[in-house]
Design a binder for these strands. Structure first.
Lengths: 224, 224
DNA sequence: CGTCACATTGAACCTCTTCAAGCGCCGTGG
DNA sequence: CCACGGCGCTTGAAGAGGTTCAATGTGACG
């Protein structure tokens, strides 16, 4: 019984990830890994909340995280998904601009900023953080561009993003719900669902289950 | 005759900025300032282009810069505006993901990456770059959130962003055209124009000229 | 087997886009 | 000097794409 976003929330609290478990595709041993404490979060578990003082940075070992803002008036705005290997909360500032939650049971390395700042004269560490922040900036810029397009292109762009970042080959496993995807793409869940169905009808993809996507013609998707 | 985006392009090539000239609101003397060469760009002048090797980073002294992507198929996607004090092209990577052009005559400090990398063991410099990149990341995340909203909120968000970043008080001077704004907000120029007109009809703002905005009730704008 | 959460599908509506026309400013050239 | 043309902005009317509202479907768990 794999841990999907579709299981019962209360029950999932104690589950372990069966699929893609372990330590996927990350570099041999990076500087950050020596500093942080491994912590586990259940599905929908809160990692930090908007407005709280920003005291840590985070690196994902396994699972998936969403970061989002929740305006007093308005819809939830999902800013990013983070997958194993990614760092988040790198943007600095005294308080968090966004909240972060696990979309599935996740293992996350939590690193105190104080510990980083204690090494602010360590040029290697600073440079490492710079690289990570640059990568995060590039991702955010890409997402920005995606949001300037139409619904079908957004959904396709999302699929391709997940495919690349998850290093999936052919089949993609979704660690998030339609609502998460919709809030990330600035669409409604209905539009996401309809668009996926249309792509399946056009034989570009198939959806064996709602949270698995098989790409039939990746080239065709790229051309949209 | 101030340098606005509305002058004749050929003629503006030789103009100097009258409004807001000099060195606005930047820290006493930052590390980067010692390394770069000051360069001037005319309105619509190309700073770098998508696909070129990324060899420099840039800091704006005066003027305004747009960064954008231009998909083979599709519209121009404006990712950011940069104003005096901002740095851009911090995202790293071997080649530029985007192009950059001046929206008005601008003075820009151009810093070779080689010069920065020569100081990669200078923790202070690395930390400075980290701070700048973090600030850029925060701006991009904010813009992301803006793109998840409706047209009126996007336009209001844009006005407030320009107001804050330009340190304007009451009156805002726009250094970009409606087309630039539209491509930045993922709207059409018609929608931008209509929305501004409606805000003026509702007495939230007034538009003495198309490139000057006077805020009448900033609080009212915030509540949207 | 009933319930709950999530996903899918349909139909009416609304916002934003598209297409088209007109205005105002500025610089140029007759 | 004034008429012309280019450029950017504004405004109107028709149309498309996405949202909203509502109903149905489906798998997981108790």
């Amino acid at each position: 019984m794999p841990s999907t976003p579709h299981g019962n929330a209360a029950k999932s609290r104690s589950r372990q990830r069966a699929r893609k478990a372990g330590s996927p595709q990350q570099a041999p041993m990076r500087t950050l890994d020596l500093l942080g404490a491994l912590t586990t979060f259940a599905r929908n578990g809160v990692i930090f909340s908007e407005g709280q003082p920003a005291e840590c940075v985070y690196k994902i070992e396994s699972g998936c995280v969403r970061t989002y803002a929740m305006p007093q008036t308005g819809e939830r705005q999902l800013v990013a998904f983070h997958v194993p290997g990614d760092c988040f909360a790198l943007e600095g500032g005294d308080v968090h601009m966004m909240s972060a939650e696990a979309t599935t049971d996740s293992t996350i390395r939590v690193i105190k900023r104080k510990a980083l700042m204690a090494r602010k004269n360590d040029a290697g560490m600073m440079r490492h953080l710079l690289d990570l922040t640059g990568a995060e900036l590039r991702r955010t810029q890409r997402h920005n561009m995606l949001l300037l397009k139409g619904a079908q292109e957004r959904v396709i762009g999302f699929i391709l993003e997940i495919k690349e970042r998850g290093h999936s080959d052919g089949e993609i496993a979704l660690d998030m719900t339609r609502r998460d995807i919709a809030d990330y793409l600035g669409l409604t869940i209905e539009t996401v669902s309809r668009t996926l169905s249309r792509l399946e009808a056009e034989s570009a993809i198939s959806l064996p289950t709602p949270w698995r996507i098989v790409l039939h013609d990746p080239a065709a998707l790229n051309l949209q």
